[in-house]
Design a protein around this nucleic acid. Structure first.
Length: 664
DNA sequence: CAAAGCGCGATTTTT
DNA sequence: TCGCGCTTTG
């Protein structure tokens, strides 16, 4: 490796490895390079891999970091821990499950599973929940678990439901997402000897995207680092965009008080964007109060640089403009598709744009959104795998017990639940037990269906533990269950849809197989893979490295960069998001940071599009430009058309009005 | 008692 | 527009 490529600040950040260190790293300041160099430098200094812990925010960032260190040092990284907070929590819990009363091989419940668990718990207590209550409870339980709300302040009913919920998880040997941070923290607090063993192991700790850590995450690393105090945190308060998930950029201030002997380094030189873009971004973010003063600068100038705002009639025109521009610039400036990125505040805006990409036959990659893993057929397949791995997983059981249909409806399920409650037994085992009776309490066809289900599952559970070809086993399982027959029956006059869904299952299993057979894979177990997809959920497994335009939310784009960047829907109510502001007016600053993150993704060219009207949830809405646009120095911005005058807005409003009149 | 058929509400961001 | 839950049907 060569530290020579680093500027003085970067060099100091990379080579200061003892003691607490705070690195304030502006957008595009070569942060990832510094972190990877820093770890490589540690290894070079003879620090054992096993003593280093690097925590990141996304799986993608963790993978990327490991990849770069591997390349830089040429070493095998068998013992280096680079993980997200959640993945690290899983590691600790797998090692220590027994200390908190769990058995090995637990399951991780994602947020949609959480919904189901709340429903189950409510049913158990005889409570009736409206859909809205359910959403509120999901949110509330998350806040309680992450320590933001005190359970004791809640009503009796809620306390009862929460306790039932926790009991359910424990009984089913499952953790939810919040547990993955909260439980290890609790473990460390209550078991000093366990904490000590981890402190001894992880003597050098590094945290990326520190501005996005929650209070609990901060407390966790504080505990771990308290023995050696070799803690390096890297962050940028201007890029804190996850407060809704408990992220607390005041952790940066907390770090300053908690480690008064800390060293502080600011990286303000930007290597990514051209001057125009940077100047605009600086001007925007200066409007935020309560931030650490900093000014990004660059020496980069290029003829290709530009910052444009386009005013378009509607979302259709917006999509067309983006596609046209991509195609034109690709040819005229010889840019690969993968150098283009399209960002939006929320996922739904991307639907229209994706459609246009399909129409124009432009290769694209859309991340986030209703991902592949959220398709019913994939969720079903995963549920079968989960149940094979952990028969206690009632949520998986309920999901697939009647998929394909095998005569198990509401009544049979109620019978099963009744019998399982008595013994605190998982539904799977209850079913197995009841079928052993001389006269099982189900109708004839149900008995047949259930028997086949249990027999098949038993057989494949066996095969999963003994057979090395797990993906193949899973495929055979879906065949044995006749999932194909199910799809044909569900989509009677649409065999194409059925075929498509069936193919999806095997695409998914293909990834599984690749993972399973990867020689770098240290632990090719079913439970390991299930954990992986639970944590990585929405992220596409970056298999096809084909060049494609990236379509994503601004949140998902953090840490990435594109030569040519589009920000779609730069309109009031979208950016800033109306919902976010309704929740709390103070969110304005976070929305501004979000826009700041979007701006700073661009290297050379940045296009922002504003529509006069757009269809939101099937309804045509009149749009006005985002107030943030007026915070950008107008001298920097090129526009082809004039910004719409109030008369324009009125005209569009009238035309929409008459359209509605005609329709009714 | 399970399966097919109809109506209603949903979408901010993600580990 | 689609998935989910409720109602009717067989």
């Amino acid at each position: 490796m060569s530290l020579a490529s680093l500027n003085p600040q970067q060099f100091q950040a990379a080579t200061t490895i003892e003691g607490p260190l705070l690195i304030i790293a502006g957008a595009g300041s070569g942060k990832t390079g510094v972190i990877t160099h820093r770890i490589a430098y540690m290894l070079e200094q003879g620090i054992a891999q096993s003593h280093i812990l690097a925590l990141t925010f996304t799986n993608k960032a963790a993978d990327e970091m490991a990849h770069r260190i591997k390349k830089m040092t040429g070493r095998k990284l068998s013992n280096l821990t680079i993980a997200t907070f959640h993945a690290f929590g899983v590691k600790v819990l797998r090692e220590q499950a027994r200390a908190i009363g769990y058995r090995d091989g637990f399951t991780i419940y994602d947020s949609s599973d959480r919904r189901d668990v709340i429903k189950e718990s409510a049913r158990e207590l005889g409570m009736i929940l409206e859909h809205e209550d359910l959403l509120d409870l999901e949110h509330l339980f998350g806040q309680i678990k992450s320590g933001m709300v005190d359970l004791a302040t809640q009503s009796k009913g809620i306390i009862q439901l929460f306790q039932e919920y926790q009991e359910f998880l424990q009984l089913k040997n499952a953790f939810d997402f919040d547990d993955l941070v909260a439980r290890p923290l609790e473990l460390f607090r209550t078991h000093p000897e366990i904490l000590q063993s981890y402190q001894q192991r992880y003597q050098y700790i590094m945290v990326d995207e520190f501005q996005d850590t929650s209070l609990q995450q901060y407390q966790l690393i504080q505990l771990l680092a308290s023995a050696h105090a070799n803690l390096c945190v890297v962050g940028d308060d201007d890029q804190s965009i996850y407060s809704w998930r408990g992220a607390n950029y005041t952790n940066i201030q907390a770090f300053e008080t908690d480690f008064p002997q800390r060293m502080e380094i600011k990286l303000e030189r930007n290597y990514r964007s051209t001057g125009v873009i940077l100047e605009a971004a600086n001007a925007l973010i200066a409007n935020n109060t309560n931030r650490k003063e900093k000014e990004l600068w660059t020496e980069s100038t290029t003829a290709e640089a530009s910052l444009q705002v386009r005013y378009l009639e509607n979302d259709q025109a917006e999509s067309e403009f983006i596609c046209d521009t991509v195609r034109t610039l690709r040819v005229s400036e010889h840019r690969g598709y993968d150098h283009f990125g399209v960002l939006s505040r929320n996922n739904s805006l991307m639907d229209a744009i994706e459609e246009a990409f399909i129409r124009h036959d432009i290769p694209y990659r859309r991340s986030g959104g209703r991902s592949f893993f959220e398709r019913k057929e994939i969720k079903d397949t995963i549920a079968y795998m989960r149940l094979a791995d952990n028969p206690d997983d009632d949520i998986a059981f309920v999901r697939i017990i009647n998929t394909p249909r095998r005569g198990v409806g509401k009544q049979s399920l109620a019978t099963l639940r009744e019998h399982s409650d008595d013994r605190k037994e998982a539904l799977y085992y209850t079913a197995k037990r009841l079928l052993g009776w001389s006269d099982p309490p189900f109708p004839k066809p149900t008995i047949a269906g259930l028997t086949y289900f249990i027999d098949t599952m038993e057989q494949f559970r066996q095969r999963f533990t003994t057979n090395k070809e797990m993906a193949r086993t899973a495929g055979d399982m879906m065949v044995a269950l006749d999932y194909w027959g199910y799809l044909v029956r569900e989509y009677p006059d649409n065999e194409k849809a059925a075929k498509w869904k069936y193919d999806n299952i095997f695409t998914f299993l293909g990834w599984f197989e690749r993972w399973e057979k990867n020689p770098d894979n240290l632990e090719p177990k079913l439970s390991t893979y299930l954990t992986r997809i639970a944590l990585a959920g929405r992220e596409r497994s970056g298999d096809d490295e084909e060049r494609a335009v990236s379509l994503m939310t601004i949140h998902a784009a953090k840490g990435l960069e594109f030569d040519v960047t589009f920000i779609a829907g730069v309109e009031d109510g979208i950016l800033p998001s109306l919902r976010s502001l309704q929740e709390d007016e103070a969110n304005m600053e976070e929305e501004r940071r979000l826009f700041y993150v979007a701006l700073t993704r661009a290297r050379e060219k940045l296009f922002m599009t504003v529509c006069a009207q757009r269809k939101i949830q099937r309804e045509l809405q009149i749009c006005t430009p985002s107030p943030f646009l007026s915070e950008l120095p107008s001298a920097l911005i090129e526009t082809e058309e004039q910004a719409p005058t109030p008369e324009d807005v009125e005209r569009v409003a009238m035309s929409v009005f008459t359209m509605f009149k005609d329709n009714s």
